[in-house]
Design a protein around this nucleic acid. Sequence first.
DNA 1: TCCCCGTTCGTACCAAAGTATGACAGGACG
DNA 2: CGTCCTGTCATACTTTGGTACGAACGGGGA
Lengths: 154, 154
Amino acid sequence: MSFRPSPALVNIALYGISLAALLLLMRWLEFRFMIHDHSTELYIGLIALMFTGLGIWLAVKLATPKVKEVVVERITYVETREIDVSQIEKTGLTKRELEILNLMAGGKSNQEIAETIFISLSTVKTHVASIFAKLDVKRRTQAIEKAKSLQIIL
Amino acid sequence: MSFRPSPALVNIALYGISLAALLLLMRWLEFRFMIHDHSTELYIGLIALMFTGLGIWLAVKLATPKVKEVVVERITYVETREIDVSQIEKTGLTKRELEILNLMAGGKSNQEIAETIFISLSTVKTHVASIFAKLDVKRRTQAIEKAKSLQIIL
DNA sequence: TCCCCGTTCGTACCAAAGTATGACAGGACG
DNA sequence: CGTCCTGTCATACTTTGGTACGAACGGGGA
């Protein structure tokens, strides 16, 4: 990296130099126009124009750098899995059966399911058998597989 | 919404009015300073100062409006499911065990797995037991559940 | 060479899952 | 009121799953 003076200092220096140069120009113009007794309006107009230009130049130079548009794309990955109610209705699974199906998918044994929802093992078996019939499967692993593919469970 | 003239037109009009007003002021100042024969330098300085100010004001006003930063959050619904090889290595599952794990997740019984890959039921059981040990589970449904959560299987 | 590991297979046994059938209670509905 | 559905529970039985051994074979690394 080479040496770079601060932008503020550069601007101040430039402003000073410009001002000095312009004052000299003014003086020169002053004498010329005064001596030849020309219209002062043109003189004033010129000064006005130049200093307007200087002002614009200054403003542009000193203005805080423009904020560039930054489009930040934040991509959020979301699981699309959602329960498909229509599929549940198609299978004809009852609330209780669905409950047990979810517990089954959670890796629970029939005994654990029974203990979780406070019913007997027999009842769980009945429900499970009913679930198998409605999902047209023979094993709990198949039931889970099918229920997931039908988006009956997550 | 009420009527809003274009900013450009407003600026041009303002510039015109300002210029006219300043020229009038100049004229007034001109007569006063000329008549009283005061230093023209002060006069020029004043004009310079005013028009520098005008220039700055103009530049600021005419500057293109700052562009606001736009943050776009895009929610992408994407299936992120992919096999995590590092997880497989962590569990220490062998190729064969992985194969059987996938068949298990497909809802196949041990007997069906045996027939699929042409090995005996005993061997399948051995592999399955090994899988359970490595995944630290007690049932196949748990194994499937865990394997899916670890992204060992899809 | 020897040993570890993965893969294979077997037997025996117990636990869990699944099947079949029947029964009873309560709510919804015509 | 009777019927159907859901949910509950039980018994008996078969099948499948899971555990616990042991054993054989072959490839590859110390």
